[in-house]
């Protein structure tokens, strides 16, 4: 199934000066599950130990990793606009439902 990333990852802007060594040094990987780790915010990778036999992990410069993630975000944004003029946020609807369910005078959770 597809990965997706609604939010644009936060990282240096495309206009920042290009330094090769910097580009090949991603933020330190933090394990997030038994099979995955994260580097930039919202960027997940397969645990490198699982990519040693049949498919080897490739080195991506940071700009390319971020470009892929940003393109994905653009693509999703485009899809929303293509299908409807507005996206209604579920959390707003949930808040309304919870407010109606809460006994009068009780604060919202």
């Amino acid at each position: 199934m597809a990965e997706h990333l609604p939010q644009t990852p936060s990282a240096p802007a495309a206009s920042a000066p290009y330094r090769r060594s910097e580009q090949l040094t991603p933020p330190p990987a933090v394990p997030v599950s038994e099979v995955a780790q994260t580097t930039f915010e919202h960027v997940y990778e397969v645990d490198p130990r699982l990519m040693q036999q049949h498919v080897l992990q490739q080195v991506f410069p940071n700009w390319d990793t971020l470009r892929i993630m940003r393109s994905r975000a653009d693509h999703l944004q485009w899809m929303h606009q293509h299908f409807a003029s507005t996206v209604i946020s579920g959390s707003e609807i949930l808040a309304e439902v919870e407010a109606e369910a809460a006994p009068a005078g009780q604060p919202l959770r």
Binding site: M1, A2, H4, Q7, L76, Q77, M79, F83, S89
Partner: peptide, 17 residues
């Protein structure tokens, strides 16, 4: 949450991804 809900739905029109 909104982020997963909106993003995951938008990704469903194109499962070539």
């Amino acid at each position: 949450g909104d982020e997963i809900s909106e993003g995951d739905w938008a990704a469903r029109h194109d499962r070539y991804a």
